[in-house]
Amino acid sequence: MSNIVFENVSYTYTEQPNLSNIPFAVKNINLTIEKGSSVVILGHNGSGKSTLAKLINGILLPTSGKVTVNGMDTSNQENILEIRRTVGMVFQNPDNQIVATVVEEDVAFGPENLGVPPHEIRSRVEYALNAVGMSEFRLHAPHQLSGGQKQRIAIAGVIAMKPQYIILDESTAMLDPYGRREILDTAHSLNKNENITTVLITHYMEEAVYADRVIVMNDGSVVMDGSPAYVFSNVDKLKAIGLDVPQPTELLYLLSKDGHKLPAGIMTVKDAADALEKYLLKGE
């Protein structure tokens, strides 16, 4: 069983879960994340998307229900190290997840905690820095790097633990467009080349375009789940829960509302231009 499974999972931050009408951060989640896929979880602040992420590697334990990673129950304390090794997490603020004062030492932190022999740590660090394209910075101090570079170091730190899944919990939120691109490209290449399952949690719609699967959260529940094209063809529904759509999607949506027969769920500039060209030339 190599996947992440949520079975009827609810979670509340309140300390008295027995009261009625308590606010649930996530409620009754049933979800399977297959190994090898690239998943994007969308939602605005407070939709429960980050809670979902923290439930996966046992930082939070479900108030009710069960989360398993490759069959290991997160609420079983004996599994916790193995789960955290299997599921790597990268957080929002790049400054607050780097531990060491030298890049390579930071990347080594995870394997050191796992008790990996020194020579193997060395080769894992080299491999991980290579995978995120940061080898030449291995002796730099973290505070000399840009936001995007720091996040790549954080990703390398996770890769050095040889995980099967990487969860990027709003890891692009504090970055400029260039840094965001760096992280997305890195995540994409890890998924395609290293066969690592990536779960990207974000509120930037454009980041969902290239995923295999998009899960939309609102108010603690999954409201949409499917391919990017499927999710972005529901423009009304997305807008109703306070999410944007990419500009190309929006343009074609406005036109089809006027009665023009254009395909729904288009997300990129090229696809939009193709569809418009076809439509105009038909001259209907």
Binding site: Q247, P248, E250, A273, E277
Partner: peptide, 28 residues
């Protein structure tokens, strides 16, 4: 803006699109 990119792309493909369009509503 993505919307300007679409307009530029259409222009390249020979459609008589005006310049200086940068919001979705104008493009619409």
């Amino acid at each position: 803006p993505k919307i300007t990119e679409i307009m530029l792309e259409l222009k390249h493909r020979g459609f008589p699109v005006s310049d200086g369009i940068y919001t979705t509503s104008d493009a619409h």
